[in-house]
Design a protein around this nucleic acid. Structure first.
Length: 308
DNA sequence: ACTATTTCCTGGATGC
DNA sequence: TGCATCCAGGAAATAG
C-alpha cells in the first residue's frame, strides 16, 4: 500500500526514467479508473505533452507537463535525466519544470497529471512490446518507444489532470512541518490520534503503516484521544513521524504485498517495522506480544507495555 | 465544525 | 476441488 515513502520512491524512479520524454498518444481502458477529470480531458492534456518532471506531494504523484505554444513545434528530446543520478528535491524539480516551460522562446503551456495509487495502483515504464497486464487502465505511449502504464486491480486509485498546473494536496507535508505546526493540527481533536494521523487534510502522506510505526516509536497508544497528548508527547510524535518517513524513504519504502519501485525492485523498510503486521510477535524492546485492535475500521498495532 | 460509519473494489486467504 | 465468505485499506460520501 503506497504511502508517502513508497510514493516518493516511485515518483523519483519515474522522474529518472521518463523525464524529457514526450507522450505521443494515450489509451484509456473501457472501464477506467474512477477519473477525477473527464476522460476526454485527460487524453487531451496528456497527448503531445512533454514530461518535464515527476515528483510527489502527499500521496499523489505529480507529473509536470509542458507543451509548446499552439502552432509551435513541440520538440521531443532525449531524456537528460539519466545523467544525473542524484535525487533532486521536489522543489528543484518543480523549478526545473517551470524553467523548461519558459525556455524555448515563447511561454509554453503547463499542466499536471495527478496520479493517486490507492492501494494497488502501479505506474510502469515498459517497452511497448511488453504484454499488457490485466487491470491496465491507461497507457501513455512515449516517443522513446516505451510506454507509461497505469495498472490498478482494486481500482482505488485516482487519475486527474490539472490544465492550470496548480495542484496542491490538502494537508501539510509531514517531512517539513515544524513541531509547533504539527501540534497545532491536532489541537482540540477528540478523535484517536491514530485516526488524526491518517486524516489527509491534516497531514498529507501518512497511511496505516507509518501511523502505527510513528506511534510505536513515540511510545503513544493509537487509541489515545489526540487532544489528550501532552506537549512533550506531541514533540516526540512529530520527531517520530519525520524519522520513520525519512528512514523508510532511504530504504525504498515497505514492500508488503506487491509494491515495487519504478524499477521493479522491492523496498526494505518492512524489515524495520516494529509493530505493523506483527500481531502476536514479540515487541522488539520488551518481548511482549504486539496487539492488534481496530480503530475506525483500520487495524492498529501496538505494544501495550511500551506505548502509553 | 467535527466525528463516526459506510461504500467502493478485487485478489488472496480461509473455511466447509 | 470448488465455492462462499471475509479481509485488506485510502478517501469520498453519508449520517449523526
Amino acid at each position: 500500500m503506497p504511502e508517502l515513502p513508497e510514493v516518493e520512491t516511485i515518483a523519483n524512479g519515474l522522474h529518472q526514467r521518463v523525464q524529457g520524454d514526450v507522450i505521443e498518444s494515450v489509451w484509456l481502458g473501457e472501464k477506467p479508473e474512477p477519473l477525477q477529470s473527464p476522460a476526454a480531458e485527460i487524453v487531451r492534456v496528456l497527448t503531445g505533452a512533454r514530461i518535464a518532471a515527476v515528483h510527489r506531494t502527499g500521496k499523489h504523484i505529480v507529473v509536470e507537463l509542458t507543451r509548446a505554444e499552439r502552432g509551435a513545434q513541440s520538440m521531443p528530446v532525449k531524456s537528460k535525466a539519466v545523467k544525473s543520478k542524484a535525487v533532486k528535491s521536489n522543489a528543484t524539480k518543480r523549478k526545473e519544470a517551470k524553467t523548461a516551460a519558459e525556455s524555448n522562446g515563447t511561454a509554453a503551456e503547463r499542466a499536471q497529471w495527478i496520479v493517486h495509487l490507492g492501494m494497488t495502483g502501479r505506474m510502469l515504464v515498459v517497452e511497448a512490446a511488453e504484454e499488457v497486464a490485466k487491470h491496465t487502465h491507461l497507457i501513455a505511449k512515449l516517443v522513446s518507444g516505451r510506454e507509461l502504464r497505469f495498472v490498478d486491480p482494486r481500482r482505488f486509485g485516482r487519475l486527474a489532470v490539472k490544465p492550470a498546473a496548480d495542484f496542491a494536496a490538502p494537508g501539510v507535508e509531514p517531512l517539513t512541518v515544524s513541531a509547533a505546526g504539527f501540534a497545532e493540527l491536532f489541537k482540540g481533536r477528540k478523535t484517536p490520534i491514530k485516526s488524526a494521523l491518517l486524516n489527509q487534510s491534516l497531514l498529507a502522506g501518512v497511511g496505516n503503516i507509518y501511523a502505527d510505526e510513528a506511534l510505536s516509536r513515540a511510545g503513544i497508544r493509537p487509541m489515545r484521544r489526540a487532544t489528550s497528548l501532552t506537549g512533550v508527547e506531541m514533540c516526540k510524535l512529530h520527531r517520530a513521524v519525520q524519522k520513520v518517513l525519512a528512514e523508510a524513504i532511504k530504504l525504498g519504502g515497505s514492500s508488503i504485498n506487491d509494491y515495487v519501485t519504478a524499477n521493479g525492485e522491492p523496498g526494505f523498510f518492512q524489515l524495520k517495522h516494529r509493530v505493523y503486521g506483527r500481531e502476536g510477535e514479540p515487541c522488539r524492546k520488551c518481548k511482549l506480544p504486539i496487539e492488534r485492535i481496530v480503530i475506525a475500521g483500520r487495524s492498529a498495532h501496538y505494544c501495550a507495555k511500551c506505548q502509553k
